[in-house]
Design a protein around this nucleic acid. Structure first.
Lengths: 341, 341
DNA sequence: TTGAAAGCGCTAACAA
DNA sequence: TTGTTAGCGCTTTCAA
């Protein structure tokens, strides 16, 4: 807009000192007389000068910026995760560059490039399309959240398998004999599913898994849930559902209402995540709360340890071998009317 | 990690050409023989070279980055807004730097400084603590979303006053005679409130407004809503509530359940925002949907117009005088079981 | 078709 | 206590 941003030189000229002196005042380094200090500060004030962080970073210094890649901050879990990561970073004087991959590999690839191009000091990824080779190219500190990318990259997450078992147990204790799992992608990498399967088998029951992909667009999504649940229900009456996220849990509740199933009379429901937003929206939905703040803090601590080259001697996990650390935090069962009255 | 990122010089050396040539290949400028082009490209590939955008931007060029300030992306409205803004920007080759002010003036101030320091090309602010003088210092393109900051700064928003009236009318049509407004800050700048008041008066009824600040921490928040509604209800039975955001609407529903008020039998409820997340979580909550995508696109269009110096001759609004444009998009009434069965 | 050299705004030796 | 100077990685005249 109005002309260009003032530079160090402008300040120096106005204050009648050299560039170095201004730089010193800015960084509070070396010996300065109070008088020049004041003169420089006044000049800075008068011009509304703000140091150009790009030039600063170019000098080989840190950018003090960390990239965070998530599927989309519009989902409460990732939104809250982003804010917690931002808070943890802010305490250490770092800032965050948030990237929404939307679950698309091309966007994730692009963002990875962007982050490297912007010389962030490190990356936290909570969204990795499996098989994105680009991560191997990354020459900077990297930590993943939730999904594990590779055994050589530190991973922080909720103890998903335990939590999955906990949720399933809660359904069984509420009397469910035919508990069903509603998740977004089934497979061996789905640890919540593994917990569910283990617990169901232990009870001598059989597992039933229904899948609705995470990134299904809004209009079709509920229809898919409805159809899938209808099909399963016709097969053998569903009397309990463990949905691996709370929004899916909400859809189960809506389905139950449509089909005149009383909750928890005919059907118990438990979700996953326990974000603040979903607690406010549906306080009666039982769920497993992920310790988002702890996860964010641990991820940041590990990353900053790598960046600053001083692996913090944190109490959390330590892997003797060459393998990176994996840190798991337990989830918390939040009971609610959707489970037991 | 492994050593440092490769630079232009590294590529040039490996390819056996000059820096200029590599730069040319990168930017596809000037005449190059196919042979050198290929040699350079191979070298880039081999080294995994990624241009340093900071150095590039330092050269007075655009950073192709726009800052977005919102209270917090953990709230669905702002989360979805951020993603839409990001999408609109991406189409134009720009990226986004998301900042969560958390409603704190100090953090907003800090972020403003950060954005200027990072030489973003422009700022979109959806979170302005009133009376933050810093905005006057901003020498770059600036657009506000929702709340108006100053008449000289373009503002894009939902037609809040109309929408507030629409919501109120919906309650009245559903039979409410004592509709109450639940909002986060009451006052003349609250346009949804203005719409509510106008409609209530037109119907010859009296306005009742209950306030629970936006940034009340989770545990206290519901208690405050409950107490305030209890007090109002004891005063004169509430038979309708217009909550100026859907999460507050959800709390009203919860309060009604606690107090054994049937919805919509005893009490009609309508919220505001209509985000995808809240539609999934509470599809039966009537609401006014804000056209988030349109808002985001318009804000980006206006901002890029300023940045690129070609005010797009958009159909939307045009202000003859020196005042900036204000763009309003209508909200949409989404009926639901909380209003009428 | 290619290269040499200056400079973007800043920091950091090295002098004075 | 302050200033001079040489880069950081890149783009861009101006020459060749």
């Amino acid at each position: 807009m109005s002309s260009r941003e003032p530079t160090l030189a402008d300040v120096a000229e106005l204050a009648g000192v050299s560039l170095t002196t201004v730089s010193r005042v800015l960084n509070n380094r070396g010996y300065l007389s109070e008088k020049t200090k004041k003169r420089v500060k006044d000049a800075i004030e008068a011009l509304g000068y703000r140091p150009n962080s790009l030039a600063r970073a170019l000098h080989g210094m840190r950018t003090q910026t960390v990239g965070l890649i998530v599927p989309t901050v519009s989902l409460p879990f990732f939104g809250e995760l982003a804010v917690e990561v931002e808070n943890a970073l802010a305490e250490a004087g770092y800032r965050i560059l948030i990237c929404n991959s939307l679950g698309r590999a091309d966007r994730e690839r692009e963002y990875l490039s962007l982050l490297v191009g912007n010389r962030v000091d490190g990356i936290i990824s909570g969204a990795h399309n499996e098989g994105l080779g680009e991560y191997d190219t990354i020459r900077m500190p990297l930590v993943t959240i939730d999904r594990e990318l590779s055994p050589s990259i530190p991973n922080v997450r909720c103890a998903n398998e335990n939590a999955g078992a906990m949720a399933t147990r809660a359904l069984l204790e509420a009397g469910s004999r035919h508990p069903l799992l509603l998740t977004s992608r089934s497979g061996p990498r789905n640890l919540r599913e593994a917990g569910y399967r283990a617990e169901v088998e232990r009870a001598g029951l059989h597992a039933r898994v229904v899948t609705v992909p995470f990134d299904t667009p809004a209009p079709q999504r509920f229809a898919m849930v409805r159809d899938a649940l209808d099909a399963a229900h016709g097969d053998e009456a569903i009397d309990g559902v463990f949905a691996t996220d709370d929004l899916a849990g909400a859809e189960v509740l809506e389905w139950a209402r449509m089909r005149d199933l009383s909750v928890p009379g005919d059907l118990s429901v438990i979700g996953f995540d326990g974000t603040e937003t979903m607690r406010r929206a549906l306080p009666h939905l039982a769920t497993i709360r992920q310790p988002i703040e702890q996860i964010a803090r641990a991820a940041v601590a590990i990353l900053l340890g790598q960046i600053e080259g001083t692996e913090p001697r944190s109490p959390i996990d330590q892997d003797g071998a060459g393998r990176a650390r994996t840190v798991e935090f337990p989830g918390t069962l939040l009971r609610g009317r959707s489970l037991t009255l």
